[in-house]
């Protein structure tokens, strides 16, 4: 992988970290606000079903995680396992796809 590609990965990780920081704050504030007076599945669905704004927000959240986590895991693989090369990159792409799939599945479940 070229120095430029490695630098782009670093930039993607830092940019996604900034995005996630924002998403986590919005998510936590929403939770604290939403649980006041009890929490039920009906209440959650009432807020999220058909709501495009929440759908877009949580889609960005999930995709941010899918970008951020595998890049961090890449450094862990290098430093702790000495794992490099295509097999590592393939495993990380698979991990990113798994995160995106699981996350988006949850987002669709509360939207549709």
């Amino acid at each position: 992988m070229s120095a430029k590609a490695q630098s782009l990965l670093w930039i993607a990780q830092r940019a996604s970290a900034a995005l996630l920081a924002l998403c986590v704050i919005v998510h936590l504030v929403t939770i604290i606000y939403a649980v006041q007076g009890g929490l039920s599945a009906a209440e959650i669905f009432g807020r999220t079903r058909g709501n495009v704004a929440w759908f877009v927000f949580y889609s960005i959240f999930v995709l941010g995680v899918a970008v951020h986590a595998p890049i961090g895991l890449r450094s862990v693989f290098i430093e702790w396992l000495g794992w490099r090369g295509r097999s590592r990159d393939a495993a990380l792409v698979a991990f990113a796809a798994l995160l995106a799939w699981m996350g988006m599945r949850a987002v669709f479940a509360v939207f549709a």
Partner: peptide, 12 residues
């Protein structure tokens, strides 16, 4: 900058 960028360089 190309020599010091990436996994073996400043980003590590």
């Amino acid at each position: 900058l190309r020599a010091v960028a990436g996994d073996a360089g400043c980003h590590a």
